[in-house]
Structure formats: C-alpha cells, structure tokens
Design a protein around this nucleic acid. Structure first.
Length: 247
DNA sequence: AAACGACTCAACCGCAGTACT
DNA sequence: GAGTACTGCGGTTGAGTCGTT
C-alpha cells in the first residue's frame, strides 16, 4: 500500500485476507500454536509473510478479540490512559480485554483525536452526522470462535459488494482454546517498571517526560498495593497500576 | 439515482528491541 | 562484541463504506 514491498514479499499475497486464508491460518495455529511467525506461512502453505499472519491473528482471528462499538466507559478509559501514556497503544490496549492496539489506535485517530482537537480550538468543525459504524455486523468479516455450543468456528465475511459468505472453519472444543497470550499484560508491568524514563502529566493533562534521576524507586501504584499470598505478583502490580492510572 | 467527499479500519511499512549464533 | 534472525510496536496508507448534496 503505497510503499514498495520488501524483497522477500515479491510473489507473496498482500491485501485483504480471504476466508480460505483465515481458515488455513486458524487451523495451523490451532494445531501448532502461535509463534514462529517467520516460518508459519511456509509451513501452513500460505502465500503471506509472517508479519501479515501475525497481524491477522492478533487483530482478527484470536478468540478473545472483542469486536463492536467502543463503549463510553471504554472511551473514557482510553482518554485517561492516553493522557498518561501517550501513543503507547499496545500498553493502552492491554487494559481492555479483547481490544487490540490497532483498534484502539484507529479509534483514537478517527474519533478521539478529533474530539480533543475540537474541544481545544475555538473553531469547531460542524460534526458530520454519521452512524457510529463499525460496519454493520453482516458486513463485517468476523470470526466468532465461541459461536456455537459444539465449538464450531464460522467465518462470516463479505466482499465489498456485501456478498456474504459463511465458511465453517474447524471443529474444536472451545474449552481447549489456545491460551490467550498474556504477553501484553506482562509487558505493561515490565515496561513501566524497567523503563529508564517515565511519563507524567501536569495539571493541564499534558504528558511530561520524567528524567531518570527524578524517578522514585517505588511507583505510585505500588505504594498502596498489598500483596496477597498466592496471587501472581505481576498481576497485582498490574492491577495496582491500572487503578492508579484511572484514579 | 448519481456523484462526491468524509470517514473507517484492515493491513502495510520501517524501526527498535531482544534472542540467538 | 558483531552479525543475523525474529518479534512487536507505532505510524501510515488506501480500499471500501456511507452520509450529504
């Protein structure tokens, strides 16, 4: 899209994924697990680059991806987190179950950034009346892994002309779904604890860089957290951090 | 009904960080 | 330590959608 493909990608498919490609990728990951993205397309028989497969899985095919309108509560949380964290979308997304960084980023760029710009400037562009989309469900290409009691995974997709196709992808037991990756959540804690500089906000909500020398050894959210025996410390730290950010 | 343009969002890219040799 | 491979992230693009004229 606009840029020259890297040399490796010559001969590989690009652009929108087809239902068949989704099926192949989903089947492969179900059998072998996610990871090894570089070799995955070759092993799975997909004419896609590993990056593309990873992106498709993370943003679309994963079982825990929540699709649909972002609620006002979620929007509020995004605003608060963005004020604290800036454009660290993966970090922000990790606070939402089922929301991807790409989705948060898109939502920010299309909705919230405009909202903020509009509220901070006197001249207000007349808002365009438009259905808060997310394309209507029947027009979205969606995977609904938890759809049926029998664990049947279906793929509803439609092309640009609204032609819908539903493909049964695989049969599997939903109770043995692949474990949702928790890397993002771990990263939240790790990043915030290990980073050499941090972000803070001033009274006007602007994000400031905090120099390393000024950093406390204990993070604010850690001050009030009490560690429970038998509970993952990282999870506790993360919860404390989220509570602090949202406070 | 058609044309136009704003808007959305899936997918691409380059780069940085990490792991491995 | 240097070089290479791999992974993940944030910025950007553009095809498709939908409201307005």
């Amino acid at each position: 899209m606009g840029r020259a493909p890297c040399c490796e990608k010559i001969g590989l498919r690009r652009g929108r994924w087809t239902a068949e490609e989704d099926r192949i990728l989903l089947n492969y990951i179900h059998l072998h697990g996610e990871g090894s993205w570089r070799s995955l397309p070759k092993n799975a028989g997909l004419l896609r680059c590993g990056k593309s497969c990873r992106l498709r899985w993370i943003n679309y095919l994963r079982s825990d991806v929540k699709r649909g309108n972002i609620s006002t509560e979620e929007e509020d949380t995004i605003l608060k987190l963005h004020a604290k964290l800036g454009n660290r979308w993966s970090l922000i997304a990790s606070h939402f179950s089922g929301r991807t960084d790409n989705e948060i980023k898109n939502y920010w760029n299309s909705h919230l950034s405009q909202k903020i710009t509009a509220s901070s400037t006197v001249k207000n562009k007349k808002p365009r009346k438009r259905k808060t989309t997310l394309r209507s469900p029947e027009k979205q290409s969606t995977i609904n892994p938890s759809a049926t009691a029998g664990g049947e995974v279906t793929h509803d997709s439609s092309d640009s002309r609204g032609q819908k196709e539903t493909t049964k992808l695989i049969d599997f037991d939903p109770t043995v779904m692949l474990p949702a990756t928790n890397h993002a959540k771990e990263d939240v804690t790790d990043n915030m604890i290990n980073c050499s500089s941090s972000l803070s906000t001033n009274d006007s909500g602007q994000v400031n860089e905090v120099e390393e020398d000024d950093m406390m050894m204990t993070w604010p959210w850690e001050m009030s957290s009490t560690e429970e025996v038998g509970v993952d410390v990282d999870v506790q730290k993360q919860d404390a951090m989220i509570a602090w950010l949202l406070s």
